[in-house]
Design a protein around this nucleic acid. Structure first.
Lengths: 378, 378
DNA sequence: TTCCGTTACGGAACCATTTCCGCATCTTCG
DNA sequence: CGAAGATGCGGAAATGGTTCCGTAACGGAA
């Protein structure tokens, strides 16, 4: 705060404690090779002078800055999804005494890599040890990052990559098991006419659709897929559109597997407005398990993605990469899981066992009650 | 990436371009006092060698690091509120080439300041220029921060401060105008029996309650306040409790002003489950304008807090402080505003503006002991 | 021609730390 | 008792930039 005041350096401390600067440095860091008495004298001097080491000078000599950058591209936080990932990153980072710079970047899929603006700090060397990429990653952005020669880990689900791309580290969630489980569960509840709704021009929607298709195929059921791309529509509006399509279909589906929670929400609202109820008139399953899923009435049965764990895994993987720079690139896949709440109606058993199904009882997931919340924000 | 490889320094560039290090430095920074030809030669050398200046060495000599720390205390992000503030901070920071470290801290209101754990980076000097405090700030935490002698700005609404505390910079939103407007609007829609519901043991709820009371007084109406502290309850459950209290009351209120959107949500859900509809059977107003407010069906009429602007104002204020260290401390108050959606029903004008009720209530002044539930209507 | 101000440029000094080297002392063991 | 190894400690070197100082060239004014 005091402007003109020369700040206290390690030399001042050394003088005050009547030792050499090397000794002070040793006390500050390892503490090894310094006698107990000297250590105490130095510590007393530090306290007396209110000395705090200069962060920049320290890092100038160290191989690592212990700072990573969480780089969010082309996203805002209105969807809590990425905020939760950031939280997971910070949480784990803190536990291992690392720090996180949060930066956002906005770019166009068409611009050449060199023109994509990056935080000034990334142009320099040595400030951040590595990068965690979240948000949509197109090829040009990926190139830009790779040119920087900074170790990085990407949250893989929003990377526009070709099948099985493995030339960088990534953490993704695997929508397949969760979505398959959800579909099988719905079948198990006696449904036969089960629709899937989601714009498959998004790669992440495609996986969910495939899981749905696989589950239907397993049970010898005919899929009913509403997967048309609707670029102009928001998720909510997509849910709206889905409702009109589903209701118009003959025979009408008894259940809808929505591509994500927001689509499910739009669907649910649309039905309500037509005087139809969920799950009485139609069952509904979401994907993501956003907070709002528990707020819906009745609470939404959905597939959970553990967002904090994704963040934690990213941070962990980046650290491994930093420690072992020549390690082979890998992708870590986190499982997803069904969360049974109350939007899938159990149909009567009579017509249920059409196919020769063993009625494989899925391990009944815990029914989540209303989440316990911290005191409200302002 | 390459481990053993000595990194390229400014001296290498100087040698390559056949100039002195000073010249390279000048090219890197201002560009002044260097001829066009030399500049080009240096830039070519930089490109050729792939030189990137060392961030730490640079900052060792500079007065500012151009990095600030967004410190979130005792919060997670399940409520998007603080995520939005962070977004506002980063957004503005980016526009002025500053960087943001995101860090979280968890502490107890009871622990002594010295024992509150802070990110290691804050213990050092020179890494962050300043701090933005978000989340609940108790006295001990405030002391801890002030001891650090780092310039800071606090998001004021969650600071547990005594009335009018002004010994640090803060940015707050003023709930009063928005909540007053909301109440007056509800009155304007023909409502007379309007209840307020919110746990006033939280200071921020108290302001909202006062705004409600003021508006009711202005129109000579009797307040119906459900303000009892319910420490064990979540917001959602509080809304639940509110519903039972409101419905039990005779005469039954026709509108509920809920302390925040989440309470409103709990209230709404509780009513739905009893077969009552909003706004047909009861009108409802929230506070905060969370994303979910538009998802509700019908969408919630509520009071908007501009969260990104709060963040932006924090960053702006911190920057002013950094430029003018001896500037007087100040609090910046951002207005809140009513957002009319569809949860307040317009009542018939017949009974409206009943000037008959002149009932002078006893002045419900700013209560110090707010944990008293106000007597139900006089 | 001389003088002065401006521009261009090289390089030493400096920033605040860590690390390494050298030396003294102490301990251990054959 | 002496050699070897460990411990304690001071201080120089190193880290990679920026800044400042000195100098040279040049142009315009007197």
């Amino acid at each position: 705060m005091r402007v003109g005041a020369k700040s206290i350096t390690i030399r001042d401390v050394a003088h005050e404690a009547m030792v050499g600067v090397g000794t002070v440095s040793r006390v500050l860091n390892s503490g090894a090779h310094v006698s107990r008495a000297t250590t105490e004298r130095v510590e007393a001097a530090i306290r007396r002078l209110g000395f705090r080491p200069n962060a920049q000078a320290r890092r100038l000599l160290r191989p690592h800055s212990e700072i990573v950058c969480f780089l969010l591209s082309n996203r805002d936080f209105p969807h809590t999804f990425h905020a939760r990932i950031l939280q997971g990153v910070e949480n784990y980072a803190r536990s291992i005494r690392q720090h996180v710079i949060f930066a956002a970047v906005h770019y166009d899929a068409g611009t050449s890599p060199e023109r994509i603006p990056l935080p000034p700090i990334l142009q320099e060397r040595g400030m951040v040890d590595g990068l965690i990429l979240a948000g949509t990653v197109y090829a040009n952005f990926l190139h830009r990052i790779q040119q920087m020669e900074i170790p990085f880990v990407a949250f893989g689900n929003n990377v526009m990559k070709y099948e099985g791309q493995r030339n960088f580290d990534q953490v993704s969630y695997d929508a397949f098991p969760g979505e398959r489980e959800a579909t099988l569960y719905t079948i198990g509840q006696g449904h036969r006419l089960i629709a899937f709704g989601g714009d498959v021009s998004y790669p992440w929607m495609r996986v969910r659709n495939e899981a749905y298709l696989a589950a239907m195929r397993e049970r010898n059921l005919n899929p009913i897929a509403f997967t048309a791309p609707k670029p102009a529509l928001s998720n909510l509006e997509y849910g709206d559109w889905l409702a009109s399509r589903a209701l118009a279909r003959k025979p009408r589906p008894t259940a809808m597997i929505a591509g994500n929670d927001e689509v499910a929400f739009g669907f649910w609202r649309s039905l309500r407005r037509r005087g139809l109820r969920i799950p009485e008139d139609m069952s509904l399953v979401g994907f993501d398990d956003r907070e709002e899923a528990t707020l819906m009435d009745p609470p939404l049965t959905t597939v959970r993605v553990r967002k904090e764990e994704v963040g934690q895994a990213c941070m962990k993987m980046l650290l491994e990469r930093l420690h072992h720079p020549s390690m082979a690139y890998s992708e870590r896949l986190l499982a997803t899981e069904l969360v049974v709440r109350e939007t899938v109606k159990g149909l009567s058993r009579s017509s249920a066992t059409g196919s020769a199904e063993k009625e494989r009882r899925l391990p009944a997931r815990r029914k989540t009650t209303a989440n316990v919340e911290l005191p409200a924000e302002g």
